[in-house]
């Protein structure tokens, strides 16, 4: 009977490990939050600041809703920053210079973003270019277009701020977030659209031989990403109020940080979960927001941020999935 006990114990050990894996990403977030509550003496929880938090995490969370599909199948897109900038420009141009109604402007932004992301998708699928390279090329194209267009427009275009104050309302943003996150979660975790991405990320040949069009689903992922980036771009535009050649830049890096902080596996696959991206985004936002509120002397900010990031990452990122049992050791 001793055998069975040992077996049971090993099974319990495995169960505990599974539980731990599910909790760890939250651990990082909780740790960071508690830390900043202490250090800012509670100011971080003030209603005003909560509004700020919603504003700050809005873009990254929205983009995450789409990014999760692409990264889950092992793809990536480094162009979304400058694509967002270009989308913002088209949108603001349509509204301010052409006088078109706002919904059309939003459509314009979404269209441009979806087009750009689709190009990345097409290039990597049809031309067999690694999405890394494909997206860098698209990044150059969109950034270049943005630069030329903004220059022609005189450097930047400014919004008639008062008209758009409503889009900065925390309630509106909160609702949009809830809807998009809810939709994203549903599509990713409960429909085949998301499940197939995870399967492709695990082994695309298996999926191919199971009779599923890997090409089609990869494209869909990029289009979903484009859609989310387009919407995010619109709100970025209303928040900042101007569009210049540097608008939107850095989004792809923020996404990567959110991905790592949340414990999302870099090559996708079945271990990928929607909530990892969202968690990562929230953690990142609190980190940035907290650092500012803390009022730490500027020279120390980068240092502390770097240190915090390293430790946070090692807590939440699970490498055991990558481990392979190998009996060769030369």
């Amino acid at each position: 009977m001793e055998e069975r006990d040992i077996q049971k114990e090993l099974e319990n050990k495995a169960k505990r490990k599974e539980l731990l894996m599910n909790i760890l990403p939250f651990a990082g977030l909780i740790l960071i939050t508690v830390f900043f509550i202490i250090v800012t003496k509670g100011r971080i929880l003030r209603v005003d600041n909560l509004a700020n938090l919603v504003n700050s995490m809005f873009t990254i969370t929205l983009a995450s809703c789409g990014a999760v599909f692409v990264y889950a199948h092992g793809g990536l897109d480094f162009s979304i920053g400058s694509t967002s900038g270009l989308a913002q420009f088209i949108c603001i141009f349509m509204i301010m210079k052409l006088g078109l109604p706002v919904p059309l402007g939003i459509l314009g932004a979404v269209f441009i973003a979806m087009a750009a992301c689709s190009i990345v998708g097409l290039a990597s699928i049809k031309l067999h270019i690694h999405p890394f390279v494909a997206s860098l090329c698209v990044k150059n194209i969109t950034a270049g277009l943005l630069s030329v267009l903004t220059q022609k427009a005189g450097g930047q275009i400014t919004l008639d701020y008062s008209r758009f104050k409503i889009f900065n309302s925390v309630w509106l943003k909160g609702m949009v977030l809830v809807v998009m996150v809810g939709l994203g979660f549903y599509l990713f975790e409960r429909t085949k659209l998301g499940k197939i991405q995870k399967a492709i990320g695990g082994n695309s040949r298996t999926v191919e031989q199971a009779g599923i069009s890997v090409r089609k689903y990869k494209m869909l992922a990029y289009m979903v990403l484009g859609f989310c980036v387009g919407i995010a771009a619109f709100f970025q535009m209303t928040r900042i109020g101007t569009v210049s050649s540097s608008s939107g830049s850095g989004l792809e890096f923020d996404i990567m940080i959110a991905m790592v902080l949340g414990g999302f596996p870099m090559s996708g696959g079945s271990a990928a979960k929607f909530r990892q991206f969202v968690l990562g985004g929230i953690t990142m936002t609190i980190l940035t927001n907290g650092l500012t509120m803390w009022g730490l002397d500027v020279s120390y900010v980068s240092l502390v941020k770097g240190l915090l990031l390293i430790v946070l990452v090692s807590v939440s990122y699970d490498r055991s999935i990558m481990k392979q049992v190998s009996i060769i050791s030369l």
Partner: peptide, 28 residues
């Protein structure tokens, strides 16, 4: 080619059957 190593048994078995499992609004 035959199997997704890093996925669960369940995720592997369900791969060719997504259409069968999808309900209204694509809900699985």
């Amino acid at each position: 080619e035959g199997i997704i190593l890093n996925a669960t048994i369940r995720d592997n078995i369900t791969v060719p059957s997504f259409d069968l499992l999808s309900g209204p609004m694509g809900f699985i």
